[in-house]
Design a protein around this nucleic acid. Sequence first.
DNA 1: AGTAGAACCTGAGCGC
DNA 2: TGCGCTCAGGTTCTAC
Length: 292
Amino acid sequence: MPELPEVETVCRGLAPAMVGAVIDGVERRRENLRFPFPDNFVARLSGRRIEGLARRAKYLLADLDDGTVLVMHLGMSGSFRIETSEGASTPGVFVHPRGPAGTHDHVVFHLSNGTAIVYNDPRRFGFMDLIPRASLGEHPLFAGIGIEPLGNELNGEALSRLFAGKAAPLKAALLDQRLVAGLGNIYVCESLHRAHLSPRRKAGTISPKKGGSPRAALLAQVIRDVLEEAVAAGGSSLRDHRQTDGTLGYFQHTFRVYDREGEPCLNPGCGSIVRRIVQSGRSTFYCSTCQK
DNA sequence: AGTAGAACCTGAGCGC
DNA sequence: TGCGCTCAGGTTCTAC
């Protein structure tokens, strides 16, 4: 489910409820998600004040007042919702659309402001960890992670440098979190279509010369554009993904290729059929006429 | 160096 | 109504 824009949307939705609040208690309803919870998870969180909430790549980072960071990854199907003490009839409170209430609600943070932050994750590919702020950068999760696509580091020169000499397809290189951190299957497909670049092209060929190229600069720019537009739209709502207040993101209405196999390419004057291929075990959608 | 495949899970959608 | 199959936003491992 969540790529960078979805995690950013979740972060912005949770921040008003979480930042400044004290964690009065935590319900941890199972022993593990993708990984076991860290030792003494509940005890280490209880009584802590949340000083900030941020996103890095696809991770949510909650800064606690004891110098640790609560790290959260949503996997494929994780989502948060905010519940107030007034209950489900309160405007803005997410009511799960189907299934028995509470199914797949694995963690609940009870906050001093009366709200409960509920983590739901049917497939349980998400995980949570507690890491000292001072050593976050050296932690295996973050050491060697790639550049932030919405930060200042992403430009044509950076892409050229990162992809130089790589024989892997552009699609695989863009999905590699060690190079650029935060892109997922949807936004890679969309970005490559906008940049008119084939997902099958060798990554090293976007910039045959050192120091960048118009092609690399264009790719960097469309990645930023696509991500920023998706964040502005509140993310995509594939299947059961929703924002923290239960409303649907609507960026999926602007997909140009993703999940459009067999439908016409939307580039003006093209009209070729969008194709689906499999790369690195993932579906790739693209227009073989427009993307070279 | 790359890639294919499998693994971790549940649920939706489809053909029959 | 239900069975069996494929697919799904992520990541990480093994085996060629």
